[in-house]
Structure formats: structure tokens, C-alpha cells
Design a binder for these strands. Structure first.
Length: 465
DNA sequence: AAAAAAG
């Protein structure tokens, strides 16, 4: 892999990255940086956990370096679908911005407007925002986007969804015509065409192929239980293993309830969903991100608010307690594990009546996984939660037996997993053909596909649209 | 179809 310096990243920024142990660029970064640094509009697609944030953070900072934004007139803008993601992006941008003498602030709802307003009045170069509060501040005249030179849409396909589209469109329309626009997502499908057509010009599309991405192996399992009662038992067991795990539910209410049930059952869990105040959201996510050896909570129960972008180190298991409604949600939720070279397991808990929907879902997501019938404490489950599952007999010595949580990029609790992995996914590395052809997004939209944007290019080759 | 994003 080429170094950041080779790709034209300014030395001061490359130095910051090197200080963080990052010298070589991941494929999505390698593919996009030359174009994004040159100021071109682009669409970037790379798997979850493949380094997209840095792919846009670098050009964002690099292209704004050397000038100072006027008060209330930021020159860089990043839009994200959730507050947690905005916070996380800002944290990635911050050290780079600092090295370049640029100021960053976040703008989103659920927290006091005051500090955001003050920062904007003082002057910031880069705003990382969720659409709602940003529009609010625009209306109040606190911020103007007419000097924005670089705009990034993270999770761009989601930002083009019905709920977000009107606001996102108004925001983009408030930025200057000639500005640079970067659209990124792991599932960059034709849904973004409405934004791309209106707001991108002469854009290049980079879609990094599967096989070359340095992402760890993601193992997909589908465990079928007989009824709701067995499902409860299984979910309990899946929550009981040694590693960090995220459990996804379909609704806010279920997330809250499940976290409570687990905690009551002696498995400390925190929830994350939109019914929580922003304080609680931040507190719970922080508790989940904290070192388990130092009081961190190993189980997060979340709605799809946590499906996209949120990165916590060393999540080794994702459980779809309720199967998601669509395949993109499956991919994004699952992508909370197996990030940046680590391994991870994804389990879908299946009720018999969901068989058809889930098969459909997996097919669209291009995941091959056999349905495994399980009952309580069946071998598949014991294997998943680690042979010496704490739950079997409440742990004799509860405290401090795992000092560090940095694990080698292998299975969950150090012990090699026995048993063959059924449902081996297609995401192993190396062998054979890449499964995605360029631009063949997980679910090719049935109609509306007449655009020849992506067709028979070799992997990772840019095209112009 | 649910959740998110303004309060």
C-alpha cells in the first residue's frame, strides 16, 4: 500500500497520521485521495470499516489549509445522519485540522445551541453537522454557507432517504455552485442520483473492490429458534460472552426493554436510541466504549441509530435481535464489527416466520449463510459465546481477569473456535474473484438503472459522470 | 417500515 505522502497528502497532515500509527493508505483512501485532493467532486464507496472517514477528512483539511474562515462563514461542511456519528467524525478531523491551524465545531440538536453559536460567531473553518440544527442555525442567521468550498456527505445514500432529503437539499443548495462535493457510503446506490445529478459536476466514482480491502473476516451466522421464549434465552446467551457486542432491535422501546432485562439478569447492558436524551446517549456510548476491565459495559442494545458509521474498537459480535427491514441496514449494522482488519461475527436471530424475509435480505446483501436451528446451549451457541461462557455458571471471580482488550485479530475470547464455520460468508480475503464488480452495489435497483455510470470497468477504476 | 433529525 502506498504511503499518504506518496498520494500527495501534505507533510504536516501525514505527520499527524504517522503519529497515530497510520502511514499506509487503505484502498478507499488510495483510490480517492488523488482526485479529492485535486478538488474534484466524487462518489466513494468502500466497505464498512475500510477507512472512509479519513478518506474525506484529509482532503477536507488539506484543501482549506492556508486561509482562515470569516466568522459565521465556514469553508468546510460535513453532514452526517446521527449526532454520534457527527461527534466521531469531528474527532477524526480535529487533529488534522489542528495541525493545519483550522478550527472545527459540531452542530447538532439535543444539546445547548449556545456553544455552537458562540463557536460560529467566533469563526470556525469546518462544521460537522446533522441537518436539523444546522438548518435551524441557518434560519437564525447564525451561520451562512455561501463560502463553503468543500462539502462532504457521509452515509450519502442515507442522507438521500426521504426523511433527510429535503433538508439536505436545502443545505446543499445554500453552498456555492462551484464548491467541491464528496459523497461517501458503504452502500452507495442509485438512491443518491437525485443529489448527484443536482449537486455534483464532472464527478469521479470510486468503488473499491471487496477482495483488496484490508478488512478482517466477517463470519455470518443465522440461528433459528422455535419461538419467542427460546429467542429470549438465546439472546441472553449471546449477550453473555466475553467480548464487546452490539445487539440491534427494531424499535426504541425494545432496545430500552432488552437492555433493562439483560442488566436485571446480571448482564450489564446500556441502550442507545432516539428516546434517550443526548446526555444519556453520550453516557451510554461512552460506557460501552470504555475498557471493560475498567468498568466498561460490554453490551450495547441499539436501534439503527447506531447502525451506521459508529466505530467502537474490538466489537467482536453483532446480533440482529430483530432482523433489519432491508439489506442495507443489515450491512451497516453488521459493519460495526470486523473493522480495520479485525475479525468479527454477525448473528441473526431468526423466528420461523421470518425465514423468507431473512433469506431475501441475505440474498440482496450477497451474504451466504446457512440457517442453523438452535436450542438453548446448543453447540453453535456455546461456540459463539466462548466455550467457558460466563453465564453457564455465574462467574466465580467477576473482576479484573482481562487486563487489556487489545486482541490479536482472531476469534473472540482467545480460544480457537472449534467446529467448522457454517455459513461461511463471501468476505474472506484473497481467494478467488472479488464478488462485487465495480459499481455493482449490493442491491442493484431494479429499474432506474439505465445510467451507464458503472458497468464494466476494472476494479477501483474511476469513471466520470 | 423504522428511525433519524428541531424543540
Amino acid at each position: 500500500m502506498p504511503s499518504f505522502l506518496d498520494l500527495g497528502v501534505p507533510a504536516p497532515l501525514a505527520a499527524v497520521l504517522a503519529g497515530d500509527g497510520k502511514t499506509e493508505a487503505f484502498p478507499i483512501q488510495q483510490g480517492t485521495l488523488p482526485d479529492s485532493l485535486a478538488g474534484r467532486d466524487l462518489l466513494g464507496r468502500g466497505r464498512t470499516g475500510s477507512g472512509k472517514t479519513l478518506a474525506f477528512a484529509i482532503p477536507l483539511v488539506a484543501r482549506l489549509t492556508g486561509a482562515t474562515s470569516r466568522p459565521q462563514h465556514p469553508r468546510g461542511l460535513v453532514l452526517a445522519p446521527t449526532r454520534e456519528l457527527a461527534t466521531q467524525i469531528a474527532a477524526t478531523v480535529a487533529p488534522l485540522a489542528k495541525a493545519a491551524g483550522l478550527r472545527v465545531t459540531t452542530v447538532f440538536g439535543g444539546v445547548s445551541q449556545r456553544p455552537q453559536e458562540e463557536a460560529l460567531r467566533r469563526g470556525v473553518d469546518i462544521v460537522v453537522a446533522c441537518p436539523g440544527r444546522l438548518e435551524d442555525l441557518m434560519k437564525q442567521g447564525v451561520v451562512r454557507l455561501d463560502e463553503v468550498r468543500v462539502t462532504v456527505l457521509d452515509e450519502a445514500d442515507h442522507m438521500a432517504d426521504l426523511g433527510f432529503l429535503p433538508g439536505v437539499t436545502r443545505i446543499l443548495a445554500a453552498t456555492p455552485q462551484g464548491g467541491q462535493r464528496l459523497l461517501f457510503s458503504a452502500t452507495l446506490d442509485n438512491g443518491i442520483d437525485v443529489l448527484a445529478r443536482r449537486f455534483l459536476s464532472n464527478a469521479v466514482s470510486h468503488e473499491v473492490d471487496e477482495a483488496s480491502v484490508p478488512v478482517g473476516e466477517m463470519t455470518h451466522r443465522v440461528l433459528e429458534v422455535a419461538d419467542a421464549e427460546s429467542k429470549k434465552t438465546l439472546v441472553n446467551e449471546l449477550a453473555s460472552g466475553a467480548g464487546r457486542r452490539i445487539l440491534f432491535t427494531r424499535t426504541k422501546h425494545q432496545a430500552k426493554k432488552l437492555a433493562k432485562v439483560l442488566t436485571t439478569a446480571g448482564i450489564p447492558a446500556v441502550d442507545l436510541h432516539g428516546n434517550l436524551g443526548q446526555n444519556a446517549r453520550e453516557r451510554n456510548l461512552a460506557a460501552f466504549s470504555a475498557d471493560p476491565a475498567e468498568g466498561g459495559v460490554r453490551v450495547l442494545v441499539a436501534t439503527d441509530v447506531a447502525a451506521r458509521g459508529v466505530h467502537v474498537d474490538d466489537v467482536d459480535l453483532v446480533v440482529h435481535v430483530d432482523p433489519p427491514a432491508e439489506h442495507k441496514a443489515y450491512l451497516h449494522r453488521s459493519g460495526r464489527t470486523a473493522r480495520a482488519g479485525a475479525a468479527g461475527t454477525v448473528v441473526t436471530v431468526l423466528l420461523p416466520e421470518q425465514r423468507r424475509d431473512v433469506k431475501d435480505l441475505l440474498r440482496k446483501a450477497q451474504i451466504t449463510a446457512a440457517i442453523e436451528p438452535v436450542s438453548a446451549a446448543s453447540p453453535a451457541v456455546v461456540e459463539l459465546i466462548g466455550a467457558k461462557a460466563a453465564y453457564v455458571k455465574p462467574a466465580p471471580k467477576p473482576a479484573a481477569q482481562q487486563p487489556a482488550r487489545k486482541k490479536p485479530a482472531s476469534g473472540a475470547s482467545g480460544s480457537p473456535r472449534q467446529g467448522q464455520r457454517q455459513g461461511q460468508p463471501r468476505q474472506g480475503q484473497g481467494q478467488g474473484q472479488p464478488r462485487h464488480t465495480t459499481g455493482d452495489v449490493a442491491a442493484p435497483a431494479p429499474a432506474a438503472r439505465r445510467r451507464r455510470r458503472r458497468s464494466s470497468r476494472p476494479q477501483g477504476t474511476p469513471t466520470t459522470r
